[in-house]
Structure formats: C-alpha cells, structure tokens
C-alpha cells in the first residue's frame, strides 16, 4: 500500500434546510485502502458518499479526490471527473433495462469516446474476470441479483477508476449473492483498488474493509483499523 492520498475531506459540512447532515467531517483515504463507513440511519453516510462522488456539493469545507477539488468544479467537470476517476456501485444496481449486460458495461467506456468495439472488448475482459462471461447478452430483467451487481461492478471498473464507491452493495442481495459480491470486492482491493463502502452490514465491513469510519449525527464518532475476517 502506498501513502498517496486519494480522498481528503477537510471540515466538510452539508446542510439540508438548516439541518446539518454532515458537520465538520475531515477524512483521508489512501491509495489501496478499503474503508467502510457505518452508522445508524440518518447519520450522514450517504451524504458523505455523495460528497466524495461529486454527486452533491458541501455547504462548507473542501473535498479533494485524486488531487482535485470537487467542491470547486462545475457540473460538467464533475461529470468528466467521475467518468475518468470514479466507479460506483449501488444497492439497486441501476442497470439500463433496455441494454444487454455487455452494453451496460461498455456504456461507461463509450461515454469517454471509446469506439463500440474497443468498449466491448474491455467489457468482455471484465466479464471474464468477474465470472459472468456467459451472461453477456442477457438483459438485466433476466439476471439474478448477484449477477446484476457483478455487471454493475464491471461497469464501475470499466475506466479503471482511482476510487470505487459502493453504496450498500449487498443490501438488495440474498446471503449467497452477498458473499460473492464481498469476495469480489476483497479481490479487487487486494489487487490495489481503493474502496469506500457505505453499509449497514457489519459483516460486509469486517470482511472487506481495513478501516472503519463510524458516523453519528453527521460527525465522525470513531475510526478504527479492522482485521479482515
């Protein structure tokens, strides 16, 4: 693991209608780390993830990811930043129903200007690596939950992101599929992928993360190193 900082939050505050969802949060994530963020509902987990992903802007404070200040970027620059440096996976997968699994994944590269052939080649490599090569032409409605999440992971990895953000990645999966996704995240981290996982699931945090950040009332209540189970 290097000491290069991928994410730095400095005194980040986010208010919604006068209520602070985040209140002076400062946090660093280094390259190759796998950090889990946990806390009760409404503690600001999702808001924290939104700040780091550039999906929302802080009311105060600085958000630096991969050396760039996201809080100073306009929408277009944020989109381009996400496209090249971030990968995201969601609880409900968010695949496009009208595209095959392969085209869903290829889409991320095509948005950067890659040709369809190049994008599909790269997508196929990922399908092989994630063990879903046989499902490339299947449409989301016909995939199992675990398969959908693997497709979503493949899409997130398409542009070799500096940081992979996972928002309750196992929340909509049965236990078996959840285990498979956890294994996948561990494997990715072991080959150097920086991970930030937002979850309620202690088991997921303890299996996949090397550091745990616990939030309460919009503040970091505790940070601790984890020994992976």
């Amino acid at each position: 693991m290097t000491t290069e900082t991928v994410v730095r939050l400095d005194g980040v505050r986010k208010e919604y209608g006068g209520t602070a969802a985040l209140d002076g949060v400062s946090l660093e994530i280094r390259r190759g780390e796998a950090v889990a963020v946990m806390g009760p509902s409404g503690c600001g987990k999702s808001t924290l993830l939104n700040m780091i992903a550039g999906l929302d802007r802080p009311s105060a404070g600085e958000v630096t990811v991969h050396g760039e200040r996201l809080d100073l970027m306009n929408e277009t620059r944020l989109a381009l930043f996400r496209r090249h440096h971030l990968g995201m996976i969601f609880q409900f997968f968010n695949l496009l129903d009208d595209l095959s699994a392969l085209d869903n994944v290829a889409l991320a590269a095509q948005l950067t200007g890659s040709s369809a052939a190049t994008a599909r080649r790269r997508a196929l490599e990922l399908f092989d690596e994630l063990g879903i090569a046989g499902r490339r032409d299947v449409y989301p409605a016909a995939l199992s939950g675990g398969e959908r999440q693997r497709v979503a992971v493949a899409r997130a990895l398409m542009n070799r992101p500096a940081l992979l953000l996972a928002d309750e990645p196992t929340g909509a999966l049965d236990s078996k599929a959840g285990e498979q996704v956890m294994d996948l995240l561990i494997d990715l981290n072991q080959i150097g992928q920086t991970l930030l996982i937002v979850t309620h699931d202690e088991r997921l945090a303890h299996r996949c993360a090397s550091r745990l950040v616990e939030l309460a009332d919009g503040r970091i209540a505790r940070e601790s190193a984890l020994d992976r189970v």
Binding site: D97, D98, S100, S115, A116, A141
Partner: peptide, 27 residues
C-alpha cells in the same frame, strides 16, 4: 426492472460510431 423493449435496435445502436449520448437518444 422492466423487460426492455426495442432490444435489437438498442443493440444495433450501441454498436454504431455515433456518440453514445446520441445513440442512446435514438433508442
């Protein structure tokens, strides 16, 4: 999730040289 529609057309469009935002729009 809904079962997708116009799937062949979507697939054909995704393989074109058009910018992806345009080919998605056409689909």
């Amino acid at each position: 999730p809904r079962r997708g529609r116009g799937l062949r057309i979507q697939r054909a469009l995704s393989g074109t040289r058009l910018p992806r935002s345009v080919s998605l729009g056409l689909g």
